[in-house]
Nucleic acid binder design. Structure first.
Lengths: 350, 350
DNA sequence: CTGAAAGCGCTAACAA
DNA sequence: TTGTTAGCGCTTTCAG
């Protein structure tokens, strides 16, 4: 007594062999209805529950997905709230497929690489989700050697499976919205080019301009780190010299920094400058004026990352990237004069 | 070839028994220097790394801590960024002690209870960290039956080990700061009383008043859910009737909602009403005006939760709660006239 | 369909 | 000190 019942106890009580009990318990074929019933009944009576470790060791699966973040969580993609949503979706998908999610937070890519090696060597995950790939990715070699499936969140430079926001389209949407408001000279405060999502966002900006027949003016494209202070000083320095009536920022905190700078330069938002940005955070929602942004749907980003990883684990060869569409949320910061609200998710084609 | 080397391979190559190899590999005593060296060398040459699952099954430890959140992540303690910091600290502490962190996100306490049962039954965690305990805690019975250690994050009503912010002191600090600015009538926009941390925050408010010899006026204590809109409407409704010159909010988003309401009532912040709140989020930092808040140091909250759990797992009987001190961060929202800055962490006694 | 037996890779008595 | 031998609890051939 005390010790919890094992499959042997169940088998004994049901009067069958352990292997039969195993088959029955796992709902597998080749077990007669009555035998199955006896086994299930015995398990029920005994309060039997399989020991996960034993199961995992026996069949060689860990039922575990490792999430690796090679960067401080609140900088993940520029905003603090991003991570919570990402994780929720990821967890949901993992759980739906019977996988466990384990967390591995590193402060640098080197640390992440060490972490990955140790996971691979201990064979403690069936697959890995790695966020924020950069040009270096020091762990790629290890990943290749061990045959553990993985997906990136964010577009990697190397050829590898990944899931990402549709950054190009997201930005195209937002910029087109500004254009639709009648703006002809739209500045773009982008993030550092080392982030692939910033490159993609620039592309979306350019496409929107081109579609509207507006010229691309390099002098209107600025860059700052993804923090308020950096955005503030960049705009403070560069804004006075250029003529523009709207500004698109690559992240919400950058937008906020830009607004602070603009105010100090005597330009009000949205009256003098319309603002749109990416990242529908608490900040964007509650800032005064509330910010027009693209909601990146991080939940689904996480969800699909886990889902795709599970597919890879199951041997599917679906290697094309998955892009999660964003959704434009129109708020006061971009309003020329009157109303607005929430734009439809699917941008209509015209 | 192909298959990764096991401890048997190492033993064979070193010319010793498996058990000896195990001892040597794990740095345990009763192994001669030379034998240990031979074993280590063999392992090195073979590229041996222990299989974590096998290890875990053999010694009955999972080396796994389960984090259970019975509530949507961005509502965890009222703010979205909270979770990322909490998790970082928790992960750090877990990793430092050789534990893995696995995530279990539920949307309700019932779901959390189901999740906990399944973890307990599968014996897949050595200990549990459970956030946001409420009066019901439907999983308490299960927890008692299986003998798995756990800690709460947040003060539970039942008697159980927990780690929490020092909410009383945090709020005392903030309210005293308002008093120090010369305010005599300070309204308190608290959260719902079902949260123990709201009860504690009220206590801190009362203590600060009492220390300053100010009367406690129930009519100045309001409640709203921890979202902007709720705070807004509560303040919009209740503010006009009461005379007050400062407002303390139990969370940053509540403060923001309150400010919006006050503005519409024709009262500017901080000129007409000084504001302080709890939760040093991006929102609090970047809002205009920037908000005076108490930084809860979530990182350490998570860190100590994991650390305490590990202590319990190791059989230590340290059952008193751990309270993480907060830090007052003074910003413009509470400034009567002039300067300010960051208050010292340790409040000086006078 | 069912049962006996051989592992999965490692740890832990116990004996030598 | 070191080696032998059982397991940990489950899955999975492979006969019957």
């Amino acid at each position: 007594m005390g010790r919890s019942p094992t499959i042997r106890d169940v088998a004994r009580r049901a009067g069958v062999a352990v292997s039969t009990a195993s088959l029955a318990l796992n709902g597998r074929p080749y077990v007669s209805k009555e035998t199955r019933f006896k086994v299930l009944q015995a398990a029920e009576e005994l309060g039997y529950h399989p020991h996960s470790l034993a199961k995992n060791l026996a069949d060689g699966r860990t039922r575990n997905l490792g999430l690796i973040t090679p960067i401080s969580l609140d900088h993940l993609f520029g905003s603090a709230g991003f991570f919570a949503n990402l994780l929720s979706g990821m967890h949901r998908a993992a759980a739906d497929h019977g996988y466990n999610l384990s967390l591995h937070i590193a402060d640098s890519e080197e640390e992440a690489a060490a972490c990955i090696r140790s996971l691979l060597r201990g064979r403690s995950a069936d697959g890995l989700i790695i966020t924020n790939p950069t040009s270096s990715c020091p762990y790629l070699e290890d990943l290749g050697r061990h045959r553990v499936p993985f997906v990136f969140i964010g577009r990697p430079l190397a050829k590898a499976p990944y899931v990402d926001n549709d950054n190009v389209e997201a930005c195209r949407l937002a910029v087109r919205h500004l254009i639709d408001q009648g703006h002809l000279r739209i500045a773009f405060l982008n993030g550092p080019e080392r982030f692939t999502f910033c490159a993609d966002r620039l592309l979306g900006y350019r496409i929107a301009l081109k579609e509207a027949g507006l010229p691309y003016d390099e002098r209107l494209v600025w860059r700052s780190e993804l923090v308020e202070a950096a955005a503030y000083s960049t705009v403070k320095e560069l804004a006075p010299r250029k003529g523009f009536t709207a500004l698109f920022a690559a992240s919400d905190v950058q937008a906020v920094g830009a607004i602070r700078a603009l105010r100090e330069l005597g330009r009000q938002v949205p009256q003098d400058v319309a603002i749109a940005c990416v990242n529908n955070s608490e900040l964007a929602q509650h800032f005064i004026p509330p910010l027009t942004t693209v909601d990146l749907h991080e939940y689904w980003l996480g969800h699909w990352a886990a889902k795709r990883l599970v597919q890879l684990i199951q041997g599917e060869r679906a290697h094309h990237p998955i892009l999660i569409p964003g959704e434009l949320v129109v708020r006061e910061s971009s309003k020329g004069g009157d109303g607005g609200g929430k734009a439809s998710c699917k941008p209509k084609e015209s």
